[in-house]
């Protein structure tokens, strides 16, 4: 299939970017979206032009490195998968595909389609962990956990931190990401110890970094490659409300 690609090109973080149109020909329907971009980049290198920079790593849909806002949708038109797992059969021959980087104030463009997502790392550092003693390996089943909680925590933990929720949100809100990270611990006894501090610190960091607020539009859930549910956002709101109300006076 032959395609027109309309790609955001930006030489560096400070440079002014613009859209550039490229033609690619003879792309297989079985090719993945990133393979299609590889083909484009090879042709650019052959012409001594700068290849398009984009994030990718495992190409198996589990690392959360790939991104791309394709035709108005994070990770493209297919549901519940990342860009690297999305195939060209989702497009029609002769189609124009608009490819943009994630757009959010806390996700500045580094180059072309690559954005700096270290804001997510900062949120995790603010409380997305549990404190454990080092030493011998604890028995895996020492602490009983209800099946429902184990399942819900696992669903939340499926979040790969790609940032599609932020990209999809009309407010560039990180609520779905933060909610998944708060929920995976809030649901388990190991996470309860630091639950109150965690939710307050992570939400505080999220706000400080300049992410938007949640309007309960739920575009995040629709676009999440791991189909994280917005019910986790409700859980975080609940956790936060209780944590704030019951926190000791400073």
């Amino acid at each position: 299939m032959d395609l027109t690609l309309r790609i955001w090109r930006q030489a560096s973080a400070d440079a002014k970017g613009k859209f550039v149109n490229y033609q690619v020909k003879g792309i297989s329907e079985e090719a993945s979206f990133l393979e299609m971009l590889d083909v484009l980049n090879e042709s650019l290198v052959m012409k001594n032009e700068e290849p398009v920079a984009f994030d990718h790593d495992c190409r198996e849909g589990i690392c959360g490195a790939c991104s791309l806002y394709i035709n108005g949708r994070p990770h493209g038109p297919d549901k519940g998968i990342t860009t690297c797992q999305m195939h060209m059969r989702n497009f029609k021959n002769g189609e124009t595909i608009v490819i943009e980087p994630w757009r959010a104030k806390p996700f500045p463009v580094i180059k072309d389609l690559m954005v700096d997502r270290s804001a997510f790392d900062e949120i995790i550092q603010a409380g997305g962990f549990i404190s454990v003693r080092t030493g011998g390996i604890p028995d895996a089943n020492a602490i009983p956990i209800p099946k429902l909680n184990a399942d819900l925590a696992m669903d939340a933990a499926a979040c790969i931190g790609c940032g599609a929720c932020v990209a999809a949100c009309k407010n560039a809100s990180a609520m779905l990401f933060v909610a998944a990270k708060v929920s995976q611990f809030a649901l388990l006894p190991q996470g309860r110890l630091e639950a109150s501090e965690r939710v307050r610190n992570m939400v505080g960091k999220m706000d400080e970094l300049g992410f938007g607020n949640c309007t309960n539009t739920y575009a995040c859930e629709a676009e999440c490659p791991k189909e994280i549910s917005v019910t986790h956002i409700a859980r975080m709101n609940r956790e936060y409300l209780v944590a704030k109300v019951t926190a000791p006076k400073e």
Binding site: N71, R73, A104, A168, G212, Y218, A222
Partner: peptide
């Protein structure tokens, strides 16, 4: 809240998304 939301995305998308699940929320 709305002003903060606008400030959170200083550069807009060329192709606007429409994956919302609550239309009037927009």
């Amino acid at each position: 809240l709305q002003i903060q939301n606008w400030l959170a995305r200083p550069v807009r998308y060329e192709k606007k998304g429409s994956s919302e699940q609550s239309y009037f929320s927009k």
